[in-house]
Computed example of a mutant assay.
Amino acid sequence: MCIAVFLWQSHPLYPFLLFLNRDEYHNRATEALRWWEDGETVGGRDLVGGGTWLGCTRHGRLAFLTNFREASSFPDAKSRGDLPIRYLQSRKSPAEFAEEIQDEISLYNGFNLVVAHVLSKSMIYITNRPPHGHKLATQVSPGIHVLSNANLDSPWPKCLRLRECFQQLLAENGSREFPVKTMVEEVMTNTVKDEETELPHVFTPETEYHLSSIFVDMQRPTGRYGTRSISAISIKSHGDGDGDGEVCFYERHLEEGTSWKEHNQQFVIIQCI
């Protein structure tokens, strides 16, 4: 499932800040945060479908994905996790990439995809489940946004809680450097759940109740399910002409369903020549 909150192009020091929880079955083979074989891309990998839910590159490309909560799905659909990888490994702008995949998004189960290029200050939200009358792809405006398993900025209670906590932390830290690790732990481990009347009622009430917290941990008929990783990407403005920011990618990853381990990668964004 997943839930993410992010700040885009609206802070004097941080052009981008993202906190994201990935929810998945505990027995699904997953690779923790690392540099990939191309030497350009960093992120975790789903070893079953081969895709990713969150990644970025040395050249300022970013992509993250959530599933769209719906009652039924197609077992033979294409893997949604391929979409972030395709963008990260392409040379297309976010808008060009959105245009490229327009004719094939019906081949996937419901998804929300955000693709961005920090150097060009461009971010696009793409979904194959848009609200009636809305476009499949739209520019993301500067500011704070929350993405869960409905459309971007849908007012689910867990999304509103996450936005409020995130805004409070931003206000407390002002324009100075953020204690990102402390911040992400504070907001992304919240286990408060919703009242039944507040649930979206896509699944059974019991399932919806357990999925209604920011941090999820539950037993489902097919196995233990919940938050497998807690990630944060912060990009701090560099301002010296050499690049466009220091990237810190932090992940707390559940190893083999029993222990949490931390992973960190840091680099400076470089211009493509």
Rank of each mutant, 00 (worst) to 15 (best):
P200C: 06
G49P: 08
L33Q: 03
P130W: 05
F74L: 13
E172Y: 04
F203H: 03
E185H: 15
N151C: 08
G257M: 12
P12W: 09
W260M: 09
G174L: 01
I144M: 03
P94T: 11
A77S: 15
V187M: 09
R224I: 01
E37W: 04
E196W: 03
K121Q: 15
R22M: 03
H210M: 12
E208T: 01
S213N: 10
S259I: 13
E40A: 12
H26A: 05
H59R: 12
E246C: 05
R58E: 14
R61T: 12
I105Q: 02
D38M: 06
H134Y: 13
N173W: 13
D46A: 00
S106W: 13
V268Q: 09
G81H: 13
I3T: 05
L7N: 00
R163A: 09
E104R: 07
M183R: 02
V184R: 11
P205F: 08
S93N: 08
I233D: 06
G51D: 08
R86N: 13
S10I: 03
D76V: 12
H59F: 15
Q168V: 04
H117Y: 08
E195Y: 06
D38L: 02
T30Q: 07
G223T: 06
P15W: 06
E208N: 07
S259P: 04
G239F: 08
T258R: 15
L62F: 11
I124E: 02
Q167D: 08
S93Q: 08
N264E: 08
R129E: 10
E40V: 15
G226E: 03
A232Q: 04
L119N: 00
C159A: 14
D217T: 04
P155T: 06
W53Q: 09
R220V: 09
A63P: 04
V216F: 00
V247T: 07
